[in-house]
Design a protein around this nucleic acid. Structure first.
Lengths: 158, 158
DNA sequence: TTCAATGCAAATCCTTTGCATCGTA
DNA sequence: TACGATGCAAAGGATTTGCATTGAA
């Protein structure tokens, strides 16, 4: 999902800072992820990348996503499996946020709020477990679908 | 994960109540899920089932898990992908609980607490989105691993 | 120049499906 | 008995891997 791109903080910069060799392919994939309006899965990244570079290979996309994930620069989501087993990727946001996945139309909301951050501390105090990554996804009905004007999505799973 | 088995409330009973035909295979799989101490993936269910019934087929396991999932009797988890892309299953608990997945040793804690339940209402009031299913998984370090006596698990992913 | 990354193709892993047979309701 | 469920085998889809070649640093 689109991320604030402060100077010196692009994904590519952060990759370079980690000592990762910057190839045109990696730079391209990183840029696609940063500028994406929606969550992308590997296949989407691949197709978008091909539009800019006809020779880029699927394996490169998977390898680059794995690299980014391993360096904690992106997160992998499954969005309640509304789209089957596909995995989606987003540049790791600075603050915790939730994914509200509508089980009727498949839309994904990401409500604002620092409230969720407090969960980390709470869990640590109560259990001694120190959370680093939090995945909070809720499946339910968005207000539009609940209002009756249900535009039944291709992705209706319940 | 092990669930309180009140009379008339076994998974099999609930399947029957939903009009699902009870075959020995389904009864067996349901029982395995109810009595499991750990989260099971499809492959584990399959192997455990084979111990009791040598003729049971993988496809039957997958089909039964799909049935149970569709009826909301079990939930599907990915536990932060500590074990790769495998999915894990648990009988749907009556109250929301969290999965704390240690990224070092792979252990999974499920802390108690009704606190989390309040999130549903909060999200609804703030966004109009009505949550039905909540998946809350945190990856981090359990207190044991943080204490230094790190028993590096086969599942260390970071 | 050097070693890591890429493209390619084949392999792998998990899961699903078509179909004949079986067995629950 | 009848229709849904199973076993089997084969297909499918996503992701990974081995290897020769390419190219970033």
């Amino acid at each position: 999902m689109g991320t604030t791109t402060l100077p010196g903080e692009t994904l590519t910069d952060r990759l370079r800072a980690q000592g990762v060799r910057i190839t045109p392919q990696r730079a391209l994939i990183a840029k696609l992820l940063e500028n994406a309006r929606d969550h992308l899965d590997a296949e989407s990244v691949y197709h978008m990348a091909r539009r800019s570079d006809h020779r880029i290979h699927r394996a490169t996309v998977y390898r680059t996503l794995a690299t980014l994930k391993k360096l904690h620069l992106i997160d992998e989501l499954d969005l309640m499996h509304v789209e089957g087993e596909r995995h989606f990727y987003e540049v790791r946001p600075s603050t915790l946020h939730i994914h509200l996945v509508c089980l009727t139309c498949g839309s994904v909301q990401e409500p604002e709020g620092r409230f969720w951050e407090s969960m980390k501390g709470k869990v640590f105090r109560e259990t001694g477990f120190k959370p680093e990554i939090i995945r909070l996804e809720m499946g339910g009905r968005c207000s539009t679908c609940r209002s009756g004007k249900v535009r039944k999505g291709k992705n209706k799973i319940y």
